[in-house]
């Protein structure tokens, strides 16, 4: 239970960063931290005490306790999507920097082209 709460505190640190920081790069970092904590939370839920890696030694012989492979498969997808979204956010940030010469979100308010 302590582990779940610590993992959620990591999520909250990211949320606090997204709300209070003004630098675009730090906001992107905080978003990625939130995503990491969610990934870790899924895997923490799927863990079983004394469970083995979900890779069978030879086909047919299933060990008695295996950790849940379903959250792992889900998160495998989510990690790669997270990389893609981070890259997209960074591309937008560098584009904004070229136009406004700053990463300050409160300085980026002139909407006219």
């Amino acid at each position: 239970m302590v582990l779940f709460i610590m993992c959620f505190i990591l999520f909250l640190v990211g949320l606090y960063g997204v709300i209070t920081r003004r630098n675009l790069i730090k906001i992107i970092i905080a978003l990625s931290i939130m995503e990491y904590s969610l990934n870790l939370f899924f895997i923490l839920i799927g863990y079983r005490k004394g469970g083995e890696i979900p890779i069978l030694k030879d086909a047919g012989a299933v060990p008695p306790v295996v950790v849940d492979p379903l959250p792992q498969a889900m998160i495998l997808t989510a990690i790669v999507i997270g990389l893609a979204t981070t890259a997209l956010l960074l591309a937008i940030a560098i584009r904004l920097y070229r136009k406004y010469k700053t990463f300050d979100v409160s300085g980026i308010n002139a909407l006219k082209g």
Binding site: N39, L40, I43, L44, E52, I53, P54, V67, Q72, I75
Partner: peptide
């Protein structure tokens, strides 16, 4: 490292 401890080598 947390993933390795939680038996998720692919991740």
């Amino acid at each position: 490292i947390a993933f390795l401890l939680l038996q998720a080598p692919d991740l």
